[in-house]
Amino acid sequence: MADIVVRRDNIHGMAVDRYATALRDRLPNHDVEVARTPAAERDLVADATVLTGSSVSEDLLDAADSLRLFASTYAGYDHLPLDELAAHDVALTTASGVHAPNVAEHVVGAWLSFARGFFTARRRQADHVWQSFKSNDFAGSRVCVLGMGAIGSAIVDRLDGFDVETVAVRHSPEKDTPTDEVYGYDDVHEAVEDARYVALACPLTAETRGLVDDDLLTTMHPETVLVNVARGPVVDTDALVDALQRNHVGAAALDVTDPEPLPSDHRLWDFENVLVTPHNAGHTPSYFDRLADIVAENVRRAEETGAWDGLQNQISL
């Protein structure tokens, strides 16, 4: 029987077999199997030490007598049965950081595209119109990143060499932060006040839900390019639409929306200065390889220490 079981969760159109292959390459002394049906899943999990996938049910946990680790393939974990995992003494790890390089590229690419007028150029190209247009410099700008987890940190890392002033907003502003300035969420207005480029990369919490509201959008400069790769409800959608209509914000690149998926008749689709992508910033062909690196390292760590604790991306239960 397999000691590592991979649930049948294809991600971003990539077959989960790639994930199993990546785990086998990194853990050649372990038996890695893909559970391709619900029946096979219950059968395989009975003797498994590690189960990995996007979710796990209480019933499956009840059937997993030897399970020591559930390695989630998602960065978020609020959808998981945390109490049941704790009751079964099953450790939990996440895929935090797997998306960071490509999401950071998405953010910087959106900022540069709006700064240099690529969307204007594309529309005129479609109409076969040769006409000059104004564009802006990204260099010399004040750039603000809300949230300094793996994604926020990766965004700031990629700003090296662009000659911009960097500002961070984080829950614990006293922590060492690789930006020119850092603020807490209580001082978010001061952080965005003169920023021309703002990225939302924070988790959705009671503190951040509706954070970007009419009040904060009014504080932002009317040329600000706002990018949301956090969660849709971090932004008050009606307030954003109103700000766009009144030219109180320069542009928005939304990889997440509220509601999501964005209805086909929603007003956000029709603004020329809005880029909507279908929660796609997280896509990367390296997803399974990066995830397998985390899981394999945690398996090796547990083998060395004899304990399923102190693991990379482990969530305290």
Results as ranks from 00 to 15, higher is better:
173 P>W: 11
253 A>S: 15
291 L>M: 15
251 A>C: 07
219 T>F: 00
272 E>G: 15
222 P>V: 05
160 D>K: 11
178 P>K: 08
234 V>P: 03
225 V>M: 05
268 L>Y: 08
208 T>N: 02
159 L>W: 10
225 V>K: 01
211 L>H: 07
167 V>W: 10
239 A>H: 11
263 P>Y: 10
159 L>V: 09
275 L>F: 08
187 D>T: 06
166 T>G: 00
225 V>D: 06
277 T>S: 14
189 H>T: 13
266 H>G: 07
199 A>P: 02
227 V>M: 05
162 F>A: 07
225 V>T: 15
176 D>L: 11
279 H>M: 10
237 T>L: 04
269 W>M: 12
272 E>C: 02
208 T>H: 01
275 L>T: 13
254 L>Q: 01
228 N>Y: 08
254 L>A: 06
183 Y>F: 15
194 D>F: 07
264 S>I: 12
235 V>E: 03
169 V>H: 10
275 L>A: 12
277 T>D: 01
242 D>V: 11
244 L>C: 06
272 E>I: 05
269 W>L: 11
265 D>R: 02
281 A>K: 03
258 D>S: 15
215 D>W: 07
225 V>F: 05
206 A>E: 15
176 D>Q: 14
184 G>E: 09
267 R>W: 02
171 H>D: 12
290 R>E: 09
238 D>E: 15
174 E>R: 12
191 A>K: 08
182 V>Y: 06
196 R>G: 15
262 L>A: 08
230 A>Y: 01
216 L>W: 10
162 F>N: 07
269 W>E: 11
213 D>Q: 10
240 L>S: 05
184 G>Q: 08
246 R>C: 05
184 G>W: 11
240 L>K: 06
274 V>M: 01
186 D>R: 14
281 A>L: 04
238 D>G: 13
240 L>R: 10
173 P>Y: 12
268 L>N: 04
202 C>W: 02
211 L>K: 05
205 T>D: 04
272 E>L: 05
258 D>E: 14
254 L>F: 08
232 G>R: 11
266 H>L: 10
212 V>R: 09
279 H>C: 06
265 D>I: 07
243 A>L: 07
278 P>D: 09
270 D>C: 04
218 T>Q: 13
224 T>V: 10
192 V>W: 12
190 E>K: 14
204 L>K: 01
188 V>D: 03
169 V>F: 10
286 S>I: 06
160 D>C: 04
226 L>N: 02
272 E>N: 15
270 D>G: 13
224 T>G: 04
290 R>T: 03
229 V>A: 05
207 E>H: 11
219 T>Q: 12
261 P>R: 02
218 T>L: 02
269 W>R: 11
163 D>K: 03
238 D>W: 10
244 L>M: 05
282 G>S: 09
255 D>Y: 06
274 V>L: 04
202 C>Q: 13
188 V>S: 03
174 E>T: 14
243 A>R: 00
217 L>Q: 09
264 S>D: 15
213 D>N: 14
190 E>F: 06
241 V>K: 11
279 H>E: 08
163 D>W: 07
175 K>Q: 14
170 R>I: 08
218 T>K: 13
159 L>T: 08
264 S>F: 11
